[in-house]
C-alpha cells in the first residue's frame, strides 16, 4: 500500500475491517470508523472495505456518495464552511455558496485538486445575528456577501 497518505493507519484500518468481516450490514459503521481514522475515504480504502465485508465496490461507493457526511478527498488546508441554517439561508447564504462553488470549481462536500480548499455546508453556528455566516478553519466571518466571501478567501493562499 505504498504512497498511501494514510500509511501507518493502514494496520488500524485492517483491524476495523477484520472485526466486521463478511458483515455487509455493518457497511455504514465501518465507513464511518474508517473516515474518522483517515479523514476521508479514498478508493483503495473503499476497495479494502468492499473485500472485507463481502460487498461490491459499487455498493460501497453508492453509500459513500449518498451521505454528504462521507468524503472521498482529503480535507483541504483551508476548510470553508457556509452556514445554511434558517437565518443565514433567508439572508442569502445559498448565493454565497454558489459563488464560492464557482470560484473554486468544486461542489459543497468536495476539495480542490491542489488540496488547498475544501467546502462544506453546516447547520446553524449560533451566530444568527451576524448571518450569513461563513467560517474558514473555525474563524468566523459574518454579514457575508458573495463578493466579500471571495475576498476573504484571498487571505488564505
Amino acid at each position: 500500500m505504498e504512497a498511501c497518505k494514510c500509511g501507518e493507519k493502514w494496520q488500524e484500518l485492517d483491524k476495523i475491517i477484520a472485526a466486521h468481516r463478511n458483515r455487509p450490514q455493518d457497511l455504514i459503521e465501518v465507513l464511518h470508523k474508517a473516515q474518522e481514522l483517515i479523514g476521508y475515504l479514498p478508493k483503495k480504502v473503499q476497495v479494502a472495505i468492499a473485500e472485507g465485508l463481502g460487498v461490491s465496490l459499487s455498493e460501497v461507493y453508492s453509500v459513500v456518495s449518498f451521505y454528504a457526511h462521507f468524503t472521498t478527498k482529503p480535507k483541504g488546508k483551508y476548510q470553508i464552511s457556509i452556514c445554511k441554517g434558517t437565518a443565514c439561508y433567508v439572508k442569502g447564504s445559498p448565493q454565497i455558496l454558489e459563488r464560492l462553488e464557482k470560484e473554486l470549481g468544486i461542489k459543497a462536500g468536495d476539495s480542490t485538486d491542489d488540496g488547498r480548499y475544501s467546502l462544506e455546508v453546516v447547520r446553524c453556528l449560533g451566530a444568527c445575528g451576524l448571518g450569513p455566516v461563513m467560517t474558514v478553519n473555525k474563524r468566523a466571518y459574518g454579514l457575508m456577501k458573495p463578493e466579500k466571501a471571495v475576498a476573504v478567501l484571498q487571505q488564505y493562499q
Binding site: 459499487s58 460501497v60 461507493y61 453508492s62 456518495s65
Partner: peptide, 19 residues
C-alpha cells in the same frame, strides 16, 4: 456482477459504476 449502482442522492442520483 454488481458493476453499477445508484450513486449520489436526490436530484443528482445517477446509475453508474463506482466513482
Amino acid at each position: 456482477v454488481k458493476a453499477i449502482a445508484p450513486l449520489e442522492r436526490g436530484f443528482d442520483t445517477v446509475i453508474a459504476p463506482a466513482f
